[in-house]
Amino acid sequence: MNPVVRMVLQRLGLGLITLFIVTIIIFSAIAMLPGDFAKAMLGQSATPETVAAFQREIGIDRPPVERYFAWVGQIVQGDFGSSFASRTGYRRTVAEIIAPRLYNTMFLAVMTALIAVPLALGLGILAALYRNSWFDRVVNTVTLTTISFPEFFVAYMLAYLIISRDTFIGTEFAQSLPEWLAASINWVLNLVPKFPTLANISDQTPFWEHVWRAALPSITLTLVIVAHMMRMTRAAIINMLASPYIDMARLKGMSPMAIVLRHALPNAWAPIVTVIAFNLAYLIVGVVVVEVVFVYPGIGQLMVDAVKSRDVPVVQACALIFAATYILLNLTADIISIATNPRLLHPR
């Protein structure tokens, strides 16, 4: 068998095993949470009898091992179960709760990735090409600055910028400035598109409207993740530039751009792709703060709410999705690293 195919199958198998172990960890972690849905729902004044009856109704009175296997058995069949918020005659499945939220999260993640990854690669390549120039320094400083601020701060600053667009000229600060300066600042501020500062969307929102409303969260996330990817691209390429085959390319009369793109980059993919995968996973798993700031209905908020109300099936499903995202993205990164290594792709 082709060694690459074999390696991919091997990694897939390992990924499944990892996912299985993760189910155990998720289940035990949630089982260890103090309180349960029944208590959270009925409040402190509920009698023990009512609580016990309610626990029986949603099935959390059974032993944990039994519940675990029931849960895993359902998942294997593609069924994430029902939310504890279901009532007789009004069944709410976990899948139907999660699906629209997951779609929103994926939408934001893909949109951000489409902006951030090409931007980071482009900046990284240019920074490597003009290393130690003023361009390199500016790019490094700016990206480092944006990554150094907490993301909610970046988010609020962006929102503030959009609001200033309309309000700046009326502020005391603007009036204390010379008129021409205030006018030109206002002019610059008005160049910024009037992005919505609240990203409230529903499943009826049309596609481009969705893009428009998700713009600020997406820009915030881009600012947060671009530095890491850009710096790795730059470092990986510069690392390659010390190789003898790069000297050879110079002596063959290749231009600096051709050297970076044709000779350095193809050998630098492995570390770059790993970092990209890591950041893309973050876009799905770690965006809850940004979601809260812009009131964007993503899966992060859903999970936080579910934890609060002890809606265990939803929490478990979210955690499992996050774990699978990590495993899948890292798997993809591994496969790309292998596929860009001719020694593995074309054995002797």
């Binding site: 003898p244 050879m248 002596l251 063959k252 044709r262 193809p266 050998n267 001719p342």
Partner: peptide
């Protein structure tokens, strides 16, 4: 360079780019 003055390095194994086929590298210049 490469067209009128060419270079042959000491370690060919290190001086060929591992990512490209020999032919592509031979005709690159």
């Amino acid at each position: 360079r490469g067209s009128r003055i060419a270079y042959v390095a000491q370690s060919a194994a290190a001086s060929f780019n591992p990512a490209h086929r020999l032919l592509d590298q031979t005709v690159e210049t």
